[in-house]
Design a protein around this nucleic acid. Sequence first.
DNA 1: CCATATAGTGGCAATATATACAGTATGCGA
DNA 2: TCGCATACTGTATATATTGCCACTATATGG
Lengths: 209, 209
Amino acid sequence: MEALTDRQSEVLRLIRELTEVSGYPPTRAEIAEKMGFRSVNAAEQHLRALEKKGAIDISSGASRGIRVRDARSGGKLGRLLELPVIGRVAAGAPILAEENIQARYQLDPNLFTPRADYLLRVRGMSMRDAGILEGDLVAVHKTPEARSGQIVIVRLGDEVTVKRLRRRGHSVQLEPENPEFEPIEVDARSEALVIEGIAVGVIRSGKSL
Amino acid sequence: MEALTDRQSEVLRLIRELTEVSGYPPTRAEIAEKMGFRSVNAAEQHLRALEKKGAIDISSGASRGIRVRDARSGGKLGRLLELPVIGRVAAGAPILAEENIQARYQLDPNLFTPRADYLLRVRGMSMRDAGILEGDLVAVHKTPEARSGQIVIVRLGDEVTVKRLRRRGHSVQLEPENPEFEPIEVDARSEALVIEGIAVGVIRSGKSL
DNA sequence: CCATATAGTGGCAATATATACAGTATGCGA
DNA sequence: TCGCATACTGTATATATTGCCACTATATGG
């Protein structure tokens, strides 16, 4: 992040404070008022400068669309894990790309073994009989190594899917746990198959219950 | 805070999630879109209800003027919950008695709505088709109030069990989610029946996978 | 001297947003 | 049966807010 001027730092601090107090970011008008500007455009200009220097993100068109960047930096707090929740995975993008992250939750590191690296939101009912339902969060340990019989998170082309792994010599079988779905057979050396990790836990919350 | 309905809880959870991800609270239109409402007014009504019940504060006139009460604000991490894990429940003892506690895990308070008070280790497969398997931890919100259709944690004499609740006038039916088990019918006024709480989440870790 | 960044005033149009009003439908307790 | 809470659709409007334009002024580096 580029160095901020004194005035820009003041504005940034004000944005932090107002967000903290009210629960939502300020508008240009609110910033101008608190800073003593008689023109809202002064606030607008400061926001542009702050965005350009990487201090904040601005969502265009959205009211109060200001997000202070390093607000949640690091991700790790004390002995706790902060795990990102991955929703729909954009084609081509790596799973942990920022655009795929829907939320972040802090979880006790002792809960899952081996350590969970992220949570993946499940789509579809193909693992129903393993007690993994649509909307559930699967805790994923990131590793390319998986043994036969383990539940794995794999990428098949542009699709990310959760299935049980069976190794059969050179070929790999991805088994659903639901008789309504068909197993998938892939060549283990295929470029299209990438093992992203193994499932180490499941969390269900809210609606699916 | 008054008890929320299922739908209201979903809306609240969505607000938390959207705030978390974008850095600012959603508009009525955004809530409506994500919830699948075709009218923004549906979102408005839910917000009013949530405010009335004390779950959120609304600043009138301000865009995105929603503040979730007792949640982390402005990217700051709220306090964590330390939830006890309850194993076999000793006859006669209250569920949360020290002797029943097997472990404690720290969990993100935003993970479950309404708030989870403890985790109960599930025995048996009677809720298999609801995706709740033997060994799973059910997150329980402690309340004597449960509506028909909710998954409840009840005490029947000396047994603590998880079932789906159906109200039928004076009598209460406890339905398993597994055709191999029989529903249990109890008189609602029976002394033997105590509703300990409702299930707000499920966590599975390790071997059961 | 010129381009560029900083730091403002002042005004305005397009659109994002909150919020009122008019309905429909269901379940629940009195 | 009535009233009330819940859970929505659909329309409309006032206003909150963004984002652009024109303009002034100071400072800094090439």
